[in-house]
Structures are given as structure tokens and as C-alpha cells.
Amino acid sequence: MDDRRKPRTTGVVLNPMKRTGKQLVRTLILGKPNTVLYPEEKLDLPQVYRGKHALDFKKCIGCGNCVVVCPNDCMWLEKVEDPELGKIERPGVDLGRCMFCGFCAEVCPTVALHMTTEFELADSDRENLRLSPLDIRDDSFGETFVEEREKRLVPVLDLSKCDGCEKCAGECPEMCIAMMPIENTGRKKPEINLVKCKSHGKCAETCPEKALTMTEVYESYFDMPEPKLILDNCSGCGLCARKCPSEAIYMLEMPGTEKTLKNGKKGKPKKRAVFVLEKCVGCGRCYQACKFDAIDMPGVRK
């Protein structure tokens, strides 16, 4: 507080004139003014700057979380055909409605969507601001900077390979794997407590069928809804498994539900959906796809 000074107005207007005179000398004689001649020179923008979107097609799984979280409804999923990736769904963005809040990049479970530092987006036509997925495609953008969200090595289950041998549960030093029976199928699947998991990787090493693999997963800050199966309604059509972007839904046969056909043979048994929640990104597409109200997902709109 000592460096504060009492105001003095004895000089009437000489004090402010001293300051402006200094400024005049500084800008006119010594150097350039403070402003930047914008189109010629541009300022450096920080890495976190939220400009135009960039989408990594190879990382994107087409879950549509960005579409759901967008406060302005300015994103949508669009069907694209790619020679490499085949028929896929990728988000497009309407920059005319976007308010650049960055939630879409923040919620992306695979960190495929980024905000670049490109900010010169003005256009004379509104239609040109509706960017399709191909317009924002930039597969190498993610390599140009360090992602702030932390990656974790977690075991991810491939249920089609698992035979329920319980070896992984025995190996885990943190005791975070429990074998849970799957209703009506007579099988068990390991459920991994990701909060306790310390990424030792022992479970993946011991798994005889290579059903558990250690995969790098980005941490999410959003509490996403989880799907619940209502078994009585499930018809086993498998639509949800086909729609699931992260392949977290497996259709397992339920033994003992085979129907007897007309010719006396037994038909195929009924199937049910099984969720591997470690993989689930909470997008709610299974819920939206299910025609039999067999999946319940509170907080998601149909």
C-alpha cells in the first residue's frame, strides 16, 4: 500500500499531459503503437483456443455424444462413405449457430473432435457455414498438441472370446475383478471396478483366450447415463448391438429357450443383449434404437 500515491492536481492538466506526452514519444519516435495490423500480422493463439472444429475420422466412433451435449443443437450425425472406413456416421457442425463453448470436444470419449485455432470463419452465405463432416475432417490434428485429458490403461473385455474361466479375477492384485453371472445364459463375465484398477495388466496377461486386452482410454469428466436391460421385453433382435458405436453390446444365446419347429427340430435359441459397461460411452443410441422398450436409460431423450 506504500506505493500508492496521493492525487495531486496542482499542475491542473500537466500531470495527464505528461503521461500522454510520454505515450506520444513512445509511439511516434521510439517505436510502433500497441495495435496489430490485423490482416497482415496475426497474434499467436493459445493451444486451448476454441475455434473451428477438427474431426479425426479414424478416432471418431460416431457415438453422437457431441450432438447430445451441444447446447445449441448445432451438430448432427451424417452418413458418409469413406474408401478406407466404409459406411460411417460422423458429426457435422453448423458454425452459424455454434457458440464455441467446446463441450463437444470435451465430451468426446475418444478425443477425436478438437477445436482448432482457426477463427476466420465469416462467410456471406449462411449455407456455407453448415460444415459437413468432410469439411472439418483433419486426421492429423490430434498429433499436433498434447491432449490435456489423461489416458488410462484399462482392461477391456471382448465377451465373444471370454469363457468365464475366472483366472483374471484371481490374478488381479487390487481385487477389482468380480465374476458376475449373466442372467439366463448360464455364463459368467468379469466385471472390472475401474475406480480401483491400477493398470497392472495381469488380467490381460493371464487370460487364456486373450479376451481381456489393455487399452488406452481417455478419462471422462461427464457423468454419462448407463443403459439397463429389461430382460422381459428383449426380443433378441440385435439392433442395439449393431447400433452401438463402441461395440459394448454382445448378443448372447440363452440356452433352454429354443422353440420346437414344425419339423420337430429344435430352432435357434433366443438371444439377449449383454452390456460391457467399461466400454460404454453413454451415447444412448441403443436406447433410441430399441423398438421393444427393452432398454432403459434415464436422462436420454428418444
Binding site: T20, Q23, L24, T27, L28, K32, P33, N34, T35, L37
Partner: peptide
């Protein structure tokens, strides 16, 4: 002069 006193370029 206004520009320079006000810390910008003025007509350019």
C-alpha cells in the same frame, strides 16, 4: 497524432 497518443496507428 490522435492515433499515436491513443496508442494506435491512425490512418494507414
Amino acid at each position: 497524432l490522435s492515433g499515436r497518443i491513443l496508442d494506435f496507428y491512425g490512418p494507414y
